[in-house]
Simulated scan of single mutants.
Amino acid sequence: MLSRTAEHLFWMTRHTGRAENLARVLEAQHQLSLIQPLHANDDTALERHARERAARGWLAILASAGVVDRYHLAHKGVTSAEVIAFMVADPSHPASIVSCLRAARENARTVRGWAAEELWETINTTWLDLQRLIADGLQAHDPSAFFEWVRARSNLARGVQLAAPVQDEGLDFLRLGAAIEGADHILRTLEAHGDVLAAVAFDYHRAYALLRAVSGVEAYRRIYRDTLSSAQIASLLIQCPDWHGSLAARLDEVRRLSVRLRNSQSAQTERLAQLLCDEVRQAPVDEWLSSGRLSGWFAAMIVRVNDLARRVGRDLTRPLVPGPVAAAA
């Protein structure tokens, strides 16, 4: 396979996955904000605390996407409506859903001659329908319906990919992009909202929102069959080998695919993937959870996973990403 084709397949799934993950994070925070309705005219200490708490949640989403400063340039306050509009429909920055799906479509268009026709039709239709939904204002008057639509379209694209008539290395590059994006997403979500795990007073609603943001609710119920607890949530999201969305499972998939796609210059990339897998499996998560060290570990792992992603792009594919999107990679 040409390196140019491999690169476009890799980035197509990264950007599709990024849009889906962002929709999950925004939906989780949106639902959390509905649990404690805020009354703008009520200036009691309880309401002020609720507003500040909600603002911190939205700011955490902006921070995990690296767009806090850009947001503040255009907005004075932090409200759910403004953050949703900024992270969904603003094409001026690469972290929005519209920017991610535009980049996914451009990569899909470039490989139309290689990929199955159904894949191009799915991604192109998603892009066309997205513009119509945004013009109709669905993300503003019914955010939950909009986020559900993004998730459904991403799932459809993934199903089309897996149903490809030929299971060759092209599918491996698609899976590689999804695995790396998944590892990055779960780490950024934990860094932004992981304080709920270390809180003295366990907050059920915030913990549930954290699981929703990484699509881990059903996995938790099936694996633990228990009420929510910080230790079990941390174990599921970080080290659980039985759930494909855990950090350990995502990194192990990157490792396996790096081996399958190896070439003469990828030995260091394979070693780094193996090293990260070993470190995650052996990490004393319970000890770090009780001592408050997990947040620092999340930040360090984000850097290392992004280094792995850059090495994959350098050694296994040829970096060829649209300019404004590359800055967010």
Rank of each mutant, 00 (worst) to 15 (best):
C100D: 08
A164D: 12
T79Y: 01
S96A: 07
T269F: 01
E27P: 00
L257Y: 05
T13Y: 07
V312K: 00
A116G: 12
H49K: 09
A157W: 06
V78M: 02
L38V: 15
R48M: 14
Y224S: 01
A135E: 15
M87K: 00
W114V: 15
V83E: 00
S99A: 15
P94Y: 03
E82I: 03
L133Y: 08
F298L: 04
A329R: 03
R4S: 12
A283K: 04
A95D: 02
R105Q: 14
D43S: 12
G77F: 02
A115F: 07
A299T: 13
R188S: 14
E52N: 06
H49V: 11
E148Q: 09
A234P: 07
Q29S: 13
S92K: 01
S64L: 15
Y71C: 14
S295R: 14
R56F: 10
L187H: 08
D136S: 05
A104F: 12
M1S: 09
R51A: 14
Q161N: 03
F173K: 04
A157P: 02
E82N: 06
L2N: 13
V166H: 02
L46H: 01
T44K: 07
L236H: 02
A199R: 08
W243Q: 10
W297S: 08
A209C: 11
Q232S: 14
E270H: 07
R221M: 11
E279F: 09
G245Q: 00
H244R: 01
W288Q: 06
S295Q: 15
H72D: 06
S266W: 09
A157R: 04
Q139E: 11
A207E: 08
L257R: 10
A249V: 06
L251S: 09
R53I: 03
V280F: 04
L211K: 11
R56H: 11
M301K: 09
D195V: 08
I61V: 15
L210T: 11
R70S: 12
